[in-house]
Write a protein that binds this DNA or RNA. Structure first.
Lengths: 192, 192
DNA sequence: GTCTATATACAGATAGAC
DNA sequence: GTCTATCTGTATATAGAC
């Protein structure tokens, strides 16, 4: 691996765990086994390095809802819930990082946040569209507002993932919570 | 207001918005209109100031579930949901701050986190107890696990508050989400 | 209790050799 | 591309006058 990549990976790990200000370039250099000066040769300054790290981090984020064809609306939603949960698990470190950035008022590079929010909205719209389709087909109960209920499902998913991040899992594992979510917020809408 | 209190309040605001490392004592001193040296006279060092701030922040946190007597189980749960939501709104700044601390791996003073987690568990237990009581009375459906369902309600509440923090409220306001939460996760359990 | 002045360490960033 | 040596600013923290 070349030095530039080594720097990026090391910085990504440190930024994500300690934050921007608490991560000194001296430590990045030491952990990446390069000199501080080399960081400034590859990146204009600390902020540029940070942006390069965010850019790399967000790169694999995408929504790809294939293999949903042929399923009923409720099953499609159920799969979408699993998709979201798997995505969070696969990207746990960076998702946690982005969430912590959202909660801080400073150091929020708007470009990246816009992209994350866009993916988020897109996913919510897919949920809402699927709910509405199920209602129109007559396979899902019509007594919920599709947009509102989609937002609730997403909020619950976020709550479950936050729960996972805080390490509070004595009562209910994330997996059990996801099953209960599906049971209470998806399966109850099914019309036989 | 005495200087010590002024320092504590200024530091609380700055720590909460910018975090520990990004908050310099020079800025705290300037915003509190005191000298840097005075901070060190009142507090041993920056970390002590931080702990004093956390201690003050957490002080008003408590769970006080009065005026629930006489209500049926479902209404009690509904009130508890409102209680949680109101609590978050009243303490939005500090709750947001604590949540962001939970997501970082460093600077987690364990004493305070233990206290916050204890309140959290206590609230969840109150929910679970009330659910179980309703099932035993026959006013709530018995086809959910009380502990698991209580955890799900709490996860959803947390998701709604995170949603509020991220500023994503175009589709659904927190208030509408809370109403949908009650409708889907509480009212559906009612047995007439 | 509160201040000014200062010590000390380390941050981000640059110069210049190789 | 990569290094060592160094500059400059600012951070935490202390000394000592009032």
């Amino acid at each position: 691996m070349d030095a530039r990549t080594k720097i990026l990976e090391t910085a990504a790990r440190l930024f994500a765990t300690h934050g921007y200000d608490s991560t000194s370039l001296s430590v990045v250099a030491r952990d990446a086994s390069v000199s501080k000066a080399l960081i400034f040769w590859h990146f204009e300054n600390k902020e540029s390095l940070y942006e390069a790290v965010l850019s790399r981090t967000i790169e694999p984020y995408h929504i790809d809802m294939d293999e949903l064809a042929g399923l009923g609306a409720a099953d499609r939603i159920s799969r979408m819930v699993d998709f979201y949960y798997d995505f969070i698990n696969e990207n746990a470190h960076s998702v946690r990082f982005f969430l912590s950035l959202f909660l801080r008022e400073d150091k929020r590079p708007d470009d990246f946040f816009a992209r994350v929010l866009e993916l988020y909205r897109h996913y919510r719209e897919l949920l809402a569209i699927t709910l509405r389709a199920g209602q129109n087909e007559g396979t899902l109960s019509a007594d919920v507002d599709p947009d509102l209920h989609a937002a609730l499902i997403l909020s619950t998913l976020n709550g479950v993932l936050v729960q996972g991040f805080t390490g509070e899992r004595d009562v209910a594992s994330p997996e059990r919570l996801i099953r209960e979510l599906k049971s209470s917020l998806v399966d109850r809408l099914r019309i036989q």
